[in-house]
Design a protein around this nucleic acid. Structure first.
Lengths: 118, 118
DNA sequence: TATACCGGTATACTAAAGTATAGTACTTAC
DNA sequence: GTAAGTACTATACTTTAGTATACCGGTATA
């Protein structure tokens, strides 16, 4: 993505491009989103299940992060009208596809660590 | 990556896996690393060139982020013994490969935005 | 001589992210 | 009736990220 303006190389990081990357960044940024997504990768989970799954997370952070993920359409929250109510969290289709991004990150991360070791 | 322990599905997000993702996250986290990497994608740049390239960045942040990127082996800093000294920054091979990760993020980001629009 | 460029650093601040600890309103099991 | 589980929220705090502004020693140009 580059062009020549008055003999100068200028790369037009189109805002589309940057916004898309930022979107992906937002989806997984912070200390807890990755563990949450990881935990939901293998099926729906309830609040307490997630809390138990993810060491050291506080209910405050779990609640906050789940809300953000829901707002971002990464996670779907379903309230079941049982007594007592049960609440289930699961990845949306879009949330599941983020695994491709994580795979790319793992691949790079491993290669990078190897290249640094040498 | 999962296994069965006493009838319970447990996903062993191996620390290798998590560390690799974190490594990639670190490389591009924060407000300025992405613009810096983007600017260096098309060749070596000097400090002031980067400063001009990246709107609103302060020299303090540029200096700090470049140091982090260098420590992380994403960016290589070369001091040329000229008068006055010139300092050049460029992506390492590993730094260049991070484009694959960004591509995956762009792809997901665009798909995600589309799926949310609908 | 003064003005500006180069590659930064110093100091002081604000804002955002995360933690610690406690508590709420409800339900079920003993 | 009391203890424990569910799905959270409230308050107050610390830590980290980022900003604003000024400055440094050196060099080059007018």
């Amino acid at each position: 993505m580059e062009t020549i303006i008055e003999n100068q190389k200028v790369h037009l990081c189109s805002s589309e491009f940057v916004l898309a990357v930022r979107e992906a960044m937002n989806a997984i940024s912070g200390k807890w989103k990755l563990p949450i997504i990881g935990s939901l990768c293998y099926g729906t989970k309830r609040f307490k299940e997630l809390e138990r799954d993810i060491p050291k997370i506080t209910p405050r952070m779990l609640s906050k992060e789940l809300k953000e993920l829901e707002l971002n359409s990464i996670v779907k929250r379903t309230v079941h009208d049982t007594t007592p109510v049960t609440v289930e969290y699961e990845l949306t289709p879009s949330g599941k596809k983020i695994k491709n991004v994580l795979d790319a990150m793992v691949k790079w991360g491993l290669e990078h660590r190897e290249s640094v070791m040498v």
